[in-house]
Computed example of a mutant assay.
Amino acid sequence: MERIKNVGIAAASKGGKILRDHYGRLRSVRKKGTIDLVTDADVQSEAAIIETITKAFPDHAILAEESGDHQGRGGRWIIDPLDGTTNFAHGLRQFCVSIAFASDDEILVGIVLAPLLDELFIGIRGQGAALNGTPIAVSSTRTLVDSLLVTGFPYDHHTIFDALMRRFSDCLKATQGVRRLGAAALDLCYVASGRFDGFWEQHLNPWDTAAGYVLASEAGARTTDFSNAPYSIFEKEIVCTNGIIHDELIHLLEHKD
């Protein structure tokens, strides 16, 4: 795991440098969907990350947002070279590189680097989670009314708009507030570090949540789907909390469709 972690950090650092170099100087912004953007920075960051990983582990499989599935054996890397592309394209600093490593479908390592915020989150299965080398843990907030939550809106939000707004409205009324930062990997890291008490979102992809999921788990978080069933990165619903408010939040989220 030490070598996996070190290679992952090196890959994230190279991807993060590319994002820093492109920030505020974009030459090309394209659309994968109506509001789903991709930039040259996404593509170049992903290429640098994959090159770093394959140089160290040429047999490993890779699942990456922009280039898709690269077959292999012995382990699988799950990569988002730029989570928060819309923020990045609009000059907002809430974006990151997200890299996870899995073996036999179990996520073992999560690395999330926010290059312009100078924050490196690392989680290793069974070894805890840390921010810039300092251990982190979820909050101790005991009730939903005292909680600060974070959520996200999927690119295809028009397909679930009514249910999305019902959940958002119910959570806003029941808590101290709800934020929407635009980068799911950071949302999960912020639950892991106690900045938020809970997070929920729909229609995410494995590269959005894989690294943040293991980080949050190692920091003491509880993660399920909206029906309180065990979470998988291939599920389309995620609820991640400090554990204490989980059942209360689930009650607000379930059966809104």
Rank of each mutant, 00 (worst) to 15 (best):
H90D: 06
L116R: 07
R195G: 01
G123H: 07
R195V: 08
A10W: 07
R125C: 04
V138H: 06
R166C: 00
G8D: 10
S169Q: 12
K236I: 07
D80P: 06
S169G: 09
L253F: 08
D36L: 07
G33A: 15
A100N: 03
G243M: 06
G152L: 11
L164I: 13
A114W: 14
D187Q: 12
G91P: 01
A10H: 08
L149E: 00
G91V: 11
R93P: 00
G68Y: 14
E218P: 08
S193C: 09
G72L: 10
H251W: 12
A221F: 10
G182S: 10
S28E: 14
H22F: 12
F101M: 10
Q94A: 13
T223N: 02
K17S: 06
A12Y: 11
H246N: 04
K5L: 15
A48V: 05
H158V: 15
S139T: 02
R30E: 15
G243Q: 05
I124H: 07
N205T: 15
K31L: 14
A163T: 11
Q44L: 12
A11G: 14
T241P: 05
G177T: 00
D162S: 14
A129T: 10
G72V: 12
T143C: 00
V191F: 03
L82G: 02
I124E: 14
R27W: 13
I9E: 02
G128Y: 10
P58V: 11
F168Y: 13
A89M: 09
G123Q: 07
R25N: 10
A183P: 13
S193F: 02
K236C: 01
T151A: 00
A163Y: 10
L249C: 04
L63N: 12
S217D: 09
K14H: 02
L26T: 13
A174C: 07
H203N: 14
L120E: 09
F88N: 00
L215S: 02
G152E: 14
